[in-house]
Write a protein that binds this DNA or RNA. Structure first.
Lengths: 204, 204
DNA sequence: CGCCTATATGGCAGCCACTGCCACATCGCG
DNA sequence: CGCGATGTGGCAGTGGCTGCCATATAGGCG
């Protein structure tokens, strides 16, 4: 199950090589610097050069750690997608699409480190159009990835694709409605409760 | 009803000043060149410089006509938003949020010049992630603009904001599911029919 | 008709995100 | 220690986009 590189690393005495520890340290340093500056002066008003400078690395290196400025938000979309897909797949075959998807977003919700950090990042995301655009695009990718999984749980027949897409889109729309409301209220209550309320409003 | 500038223009013998005609001509030339190149070699693979060159204007001038590369798609989001809002507002006060929003997207659907052109642009949009992201962001702006209009048509009470947002998001999700399916099928059938099917799948 | 101003255009320099290339340093292994 | 793999920095370049300034031209005026 382990990739060759990880096997190699595991054979080293200190469990993690110096290089790997250094890598994680630099990663965290960059991430923290970026978040700090983003919050202080705004995302669009923070050039990469400044982040690199204050984090103590060259621009070139920064781009090797994070391929894109957006990645500096630390959202870790890769993990998001994996957890989402895994949770949906893990649902029993007789679970409806709605139930399975709800389980998926519940699993994802548990990924946040802390309420405060989640609130901070989501606020930044909500107030920065370019960031929102990027997030929405990733969301779209998840939606298409989810398609086959959801189709299995729906009535077959004409227009399955359209119907499955609609269901997935609706679930994400309700999640976003819940998140936005949660952020605007300053983090009051539980996002999943809000989600259930939103879905109830839609499905009567 | 006319703006000062238009009044002034109307007083000129030829009804539209030379400048204005020239402006429209250049606009069309740029738009056509851009669309042609985008379709031929892809959006991301078409630098502004090439469009400007083949359209016979300088880069600087091109950017004065269209502030952004995305604008070269000619989607005319401004009009989209206006029509959408107007149609929703024009619905009778006792119309439900669902009905009003359906009227809105129906009105917007009528904006397309032709099926072929709509298909061409939507295909390009679907196959170019960066374009999709831009579009989604504009969509989000429409959603927030729609919020107050929709809230009026919903049961007041706790969590109106969240519920209204969820309804709007769902409507757009169904529209997108319909559009995507429509494009993938090569433009078969009517988008509004697909929309109704999607919404039915969601709301039971 | 000729002047004069408002507007349109082009060119240039520059910013910012991002990439490829190359040189050099450093780590880990035998 | 020495060698090969890997990490790092610098530099030049691309592409979208903006500000500034010079120039050209349309349209109103006497």
């Amino acid at each position: 199950m382990l990739a060759p590189m990880e096997q190699e690393a595991a054979t080293i005495g200190t469990r993690t090589s110096l290089r790997e520890r250094s890598r994680q340290l630099v990663t965290r340093e960059i991430l923290q610097t970026a978040l700090r500056l983003f919050v202080k002066q705004g995302y669009d008003e923070t050039p990469i050069a400044q982040i690199a400078l204050e984090a103590g690395v060259s621009q070139r290196t920064l781009f090797r750690y994070f391929g894109t400025k957006e990645d500096l938000l630390g959202g870790n979309e890769h993990q998001f997608g994996q957890v989402l897909m895994a949770a949906v797949s893990a649902q029993p075959p007789d679970a409806s699409a709605w139930v399975a998807l709800r389980a998926g977003i519940a699993a994802v919700q548990a990924l946040h480190d802390s309420r405060e950090q989640a609130l901070e990042r989501l606020s930044l995301l909500n107030s920065t159009p370019s960031l929102r655009a990027g997030w929405l695009e990733k969301r779209l990718r998840f939606q298409t990835d989810l398609l086959p999984l959801v189709k299995e749980r729906m009535d077959t027949g004409a227009g399955v694709d359209a119907r499955a897409r609609a269901v997935i889109g609706t679930v994400f729309a309700c999640l976003e409605a819940a998140s936005t409301t949660w952020v605007e209220s300053g983090g009051k209550g539980d996002v999943m409760d809000l989600y259930d309320e939103c879905l109830a409003a839609v499905r009567g």
